[in-house]
Design a protein around this nucleic acid. Structure first.
Lengths: 196, 196
DNA sequence: GTCTATATATGGATAGAC
DNA sequence: GTCTATCCATATATAGAC
């Protein structure tokens, strides 16, 4: 994923990154509104006031987390051809998206999915929605029907559901983590191909 | 959907139902933790204290909402055959689920999806997860592979995504609401059939 | 069944010392 | 960069009158 060590962010520090990391995990596990700055501070072993030195508001923390997501999606879309996309090109993008999700470790997708309405209200939420929209539009292909759009949405949903099937098997072994990701990709491509 | 006028609930009143109705809408639009009892009370034109006459806690409100969901899913599963299910039987269940979702109007699914972790923590959350698990297990068919499980999860996700495709087309006309539901069902069945 | 008033806790955020 | 102490808004929930 996009490193926050990029030249674009001149204020990089270890603590800044650790705040984002802990925040991401707690927001995914408990929800954004349901996670207090006190909890994040305690996990880091500091006080709330220390957090406020690095980020002016709670919203800035979640915004910082989502910037990485948006940047990754946009970079992925930047690699795609400009004109009408062939099925092969759209399949390649789905594969790349699956790789991205694997690199995020699940928490990022989980957080966005489970706080989507709350995130949508934030200024950065508009950017997230916009990235999603462009992604879906590309996957749906040129002049898509409603059916094509539904297939594109469902293909992405399949990828995102990769970690959800874990709880079903009971045996949530770390070994078949790879198998679940592979299955998710297979299903996503099946869905996309059904549209031709 | 299961009426809260069932004999099982002897404390039915108009206000009780209206609280659940308004609560559902706000929880879906803003999130559970992000919606205060004051907001719900204001929309109903009463005070917070009035709410507490009908429900002892905020959790009881969301629990009341989810009971309807659980009852509907369980009733749907009760109609299914006990033994190993054929593809046709699983397809029929997907259709019935799509009908259920249409009758809920979208808000119920939206609320659960977007507050899943928070709900999971609640006692009633265990029941919701359990209903979901049984639903997936049935749709995945007998002795399912990981691929079968993924297809079952994705089929349900397709149905649930029905209203999400609205924002894409730009023209969120009320007319093609039906078309989107039909498309979602088509894709869901495609996914299920891919597994045979 | 609904109200006013209030108890009590916790949240985000800031001031100022070190 | 991190701390203690504190402000202030809002949350859930209750007491008691009507």
């Amino acid at each position: 994923m996009a490193r926050r060590t990029d030249a674009g962010d001149s204020r990089r520090t270890d603590t800044r990154d650790r705040i984002l990391s802990v925040g991401l995990r707690l927001f995914a596990e408990q929800g954004y509104a349901n996670t207090s700055l006190r909890e994040i501070a305690e996990e880091l072993g500091v006080t709330k006031a220390a957090l406020y030195f690095h980020y002016k508001t709670k919203e800035e923390i979640v915004t910082g987390i989502l910037r990485g997501y948006i940047d990754d999606i946009d970079a992925l879309l930047a690699e795609t051809p400009g004109g009408p996309a062939t099925l092969a090109e759209r399949e390649a993008t789905v594969r790349r998206f699956a790789e991205l999700q694997a690199s995020w470790g699940g928490n990022l997708t989980k957080m966005i999915r489970q706080n989507f309405t709350e995130i949508s209200i934030l200024p950065v939420g508009t950017e997230v929605r916009e990235s999603h929209r462009r992604m879906i539009e590309f996957l749906a292909g040129p002049e898509p029907s409603i059916l094509d759009q539904t297939r594109a949405v469902t293909a992405l949903a399949a990828i995102q559901s990769a970690h959800l099937t874990a709880t079903l098997g009971g045996t949530s072994g770390e070994a078949d983590e790879k198998a679940r990701r592979a299955a998710a990709l297979t299903v996503a491509l099946e869905v996309l191909r059904a549209g031709g």
